[in-house]
Design a protein around this nucleic acid. Structure first.
Lengths: 137, 137
DNA sequence: CTGGATCCCAATGGATACTG
DNA sequence: CAGTATCCATTGGGATCCAG
């Protein structure tokens, strides 16, 4: 999010060096927004948990060990807002609410799975690099 | 990285329900570690900037508008530690240091590019969802 | 030029208690 | 059950100054 600029910008455009090589400034901004969403501590875990079908709020909480109610709710709202997750409330007592992946959310799952696969593939290599780096300074 | 536990833990283990549907507990942990790295505010921008070849420290700083020296240095170290980025210092005066993607970093670039593509593909759709959500409450 | 060391504020996020 | 509201510790990250 953020999106704040230092106001300090003197009139002179100063030639903001430009975007980052590969992406335009506002592409970059949007990509960062998605990255914030995906890189969020709980988003991917939630998406992964919803992968196999609708899950109730309390079951989500149980399936994702460390999450607090606050963060679960907040993250679910973000995901809803972006249209990745759908919410369905049943007018029963006791109340029941189910969350599920939308088609959009499902398409993101595939993409994220690629990243997960990459992680798994290079797990050992990266661990080795870390140890080497930490050891050798 | 945190690692703090509340001490409050009453003797009862209470049976931590287990992992998150899709991944085992420690796979999940490692994936989250990569996600933290990638989801980091500057990592992807840096990786993207290094995509086309070695870049000097000061050029990186110039190419990535909002970044502070501190964060640039810190992020580069993380990337080095994981073996995604290599550093080469020239014993000259004034000093010159070049950073470049390792093959590992390059393979991550491809994966991340997939995410960037996904973002671009669904940019409009997501924006629409956001407006709908914000409007309808 | 390339960073390291400090200071400090704002945001993140967990714990807890309360509500419909 | 499914959240909301509040409080508070931890952390992220910018600014600034210093050093090789």
């Amino acid at each position: 999010m953020v999106g704040r600029q230092p106001s300090n910008s003197r009139a002179s455009v100063r030639r903001v060096p430009g975007p980052c090589a590969r992406w335009g400034d506002d592409d970059a901004a949007f990509i960062r927004e998605i990255l914030d969403l995906v890189g969020d501590k709980w988003s991917v875990l939630i998406i992964g948990t919803l992968a196999d079908g609708p899950v109730r709020y309390s079951d989500l909480a149980a399936a994702i060990p460390g999450v607090s109610q606050r963060m679960l709710t907040l993250t679910l709202k973000q995901l809803q807002r972006h249209g990745l997750v759908g919410r369905r409330a049943f007018a029963e007592v006791p109340p029941r609410v189910e969350y599920r992946l939308t088609p959009l959310g499902d398409s993101l799952l595939s993409t994220v799975l690629a990243l997960a696969d990459w992680s798994a593939d290079h797990h050992a290599e990266i661990r080795g690099n870390q140890r080497a780096y930490d050891g050798a300074g």
